[in-house]
Nucleic acid binder design. Structure first.
Length: 478
RNA sequence: CGGGAUGUGGCUCAGUUUGGUAGAGCGCUGCGUUCGGGACGCAGAGGCCGUGGGUUCGAAUCCCGUCAUCCCGACCA
């Protein structure tokens, strides 16, 4: 490991104040800016480019599993939102309403979509008639609005970008399989592209989506030990189908209700990247989604041939990697700090001394290790180091999670862990909401999920001591 | 939505207690010297002090409202 000295004064140290560190990084790395509307942020080019890379990869994964993209309106008539009782109760407190068109008051107010189940359902009721019309595997990339009481860049904003998949299936089995498939896609994406290890599991009834029969989640642990719900996949059964009168005629000529799913991830993933991989020098981006994977920095660029050589290398690397170059007048030291702040996974230094020896210097963002590399095998070495950065980030995040994962057998143990430490606390649980509420009240933790991979930690509930039904993870969450 | 804090050049902040012509550092522009961990010199530009009222001869400063941001709770992707 390179020296731990903090090189950037503009960023508050993580250990000193993690929340402040987070907002400093978001601003200094030029990911977003605040707008004049409460809780709404401007995604700046660098931040948006990360989202575009996420979108590109994930969209490919959706299409490879048979999904099609559509676009729904952003307005939902109040009467439509109210068709499913649980759903409207869940979302009504946080929707924004349009009441006027121009100067005319609308006869029915319109909600700005907080999610689009209702719009999809209405549409599906029109286009699904026969078993031959199933399954319907739709997804949309859009923004939604939820009037949050408090907001934080990327983690919780009034408007945010996301994708929402909405699918309809002939059978419950098929819909459940879809729910699981999409959860797996999310988990794979986080681990293979974002270098973020996640725990897959099911949400408790208390935490599940308004109107869903089951909600599955991927939970990621941030550097400070808090949990971030990073993606969800819901199984709806045929509840919405009943509410919206969606029926199809099956092979046996009887009328049936289809089974439904929905699933989504949002720009919150960018928050997860920041809080999982970042350090006191700023952002650290996983190579797969970094807008710039390697930045070429000339040293003593006024000297004969240096700028030209740097440009030549940049163009050469650009054929295989997302590459940029900085030929500005800023000093090398300034540039080092700048691109570290922006989390560029690799930097390449090229100066007169290197040119004499047909080499360059590569430096990893995550460990700041330096490598002297012959220009003859540059591409291979860059590819190798980018892969090493990815693995390094993943392993470091996994190590953090393992170090902060605890097991508790009873309330005393659980409270002792939750008092002062953030992390995942694994316990057994009876399944009763009363115990969930008691843990929230007494230990300040909420249920994160019942992991898909269950462990047997005992026979009794951590809270009430009655027979346990599930292994569950508790923690503090963003 | 409760509790706390903050809004002054692009950024970080001083000035507010005790009302009297708007300040610093960084950044920005130009020229020159530099360049392997945030370089330096000289010369410049840039602010109706978040916003709306009020008090006053006079308000960045005092009073009331409002908007936004940050932190801590409750609520939520």
């Amino acid at each position: 490991m390179a020296e731990q000295k903090k090189l950037v004064d503009d960023i508050t140290s993580m250990d000193e104040d993690f929340a402040k560190w987070y907002t400093d990084v978001v601003k200094k790395a030029e990911l977003c800016d605040y707008s004049s509307v409460r809780g709404c942020m401007i995604l700046r080019p660098y931040g948006y480019a990360i989202w575009e890379n996420i979108q590109k990869i994930m969209d490919g994964m959706f299409k490879a599993t048979g999904h099609e993209n559509v676009y729904m309106p952003m307005f939902i008539p109040e009467s439509l939102l109210q068709k499913e009782k649980d759903h409207v109760e869940g979302f009504a407190p946080e929707v924004a309403w349009v009441t006027h068109g121009g100067n005319e008051k609308l006869t029915e107010r319109l909600c700005v979509r907080p999610t689009s189940e209702t719009l999809f359902c209405e549409h599906y009721s029109h286009i699904i008639n026969s078993y031959r019309d199933l399954p319907k595997l739709y997804n949309q990339w859009c923004s939604v609005v939820r009037w949050e009481k408090t907001t934080r860049p990327f983690l919780r904003t009034s408007e945010f970008l996301w994708q929402e998949g909405h699918t309809m299936h002939a059978t419950a089995e098929e819909a459940i399989a879809e729910t699981e498939q999409m959860l797996n896609i999310y988990a794979d994406f986080c681990e293979k592209y974002l270098a973020i290890p996640v725990v897959k599991g099911r949400k408790t009834k208390k935490e599940q989506f308004a109107g869903a029969e089951a909600t599955y989640t991927i939970e990621a642990m941030m550097h400070d030990g808090k949990s971030l719900q990073s993606g969800t996949s819901h199984y709806f059964g045929d509840g919405f189908a009943h509410a919206f009168d969606i029926t199809y005629t099956d092979k046996d000529n009887t009328l049936k209700y289809p089974h439904q799913t929905s699933w989504g991830v949002s720009t919150r993933l960018i928050g997860a990247i920041i809080m999982t991989h970042g350090d006191d020098n700023g952002l650290v981006l996983p190579p797969a989604i970094a807008p710039t994977q390697i930045v070429v920095l000339p040293i003593a660029q006024h000297k004969a041939g240096v700028a030209e050589k740097a440009t030549e290398i940049k163009e050469r690397l650009a054929k295989s990697f997302r590459t940029s170059i900085d030929l500005s007048d800023n000093s090398p030291g300034w540039k080092f700090a700048q691109y570290e702040m922006k989390g560029v996974p690799l930097r390449l230094e090229i100066g007169p001394k290197d040119m004499e020896q047909n080499q360059c210097v590569l430096v990893r963002r995550d460990t700041r290790e330096k490598y002297f590399v012959s220009l003859d095998c540059l591409e291979e070495k860059v590819a190798e180091l980018l892969a090493a950065v990815h693995d390094g980030l993943y392993n470091k995040a996994l190590e953090n999670r393992e170090n902060r994962t605890y097991t508790a057998k009873n309330m005393e143990e659980l409270k002792a862990i939750a008092d002062g430490k953030n992390g995942f606390i694994k316990t057994m649980w009876c399944g009763e909401e009363a115990c969930e509420l008691q843990l929230k009240e007494e230990a300040g933790v909420s249920s994160r999920c019942m992991p898909s991979v269950q462990e047997d930690l005992g026979d009794t509930c951590v809270c009430c001591g009655k027979p346990a039904k599930h292994m569950i993870i508790w923690g503090k969450a963003y």
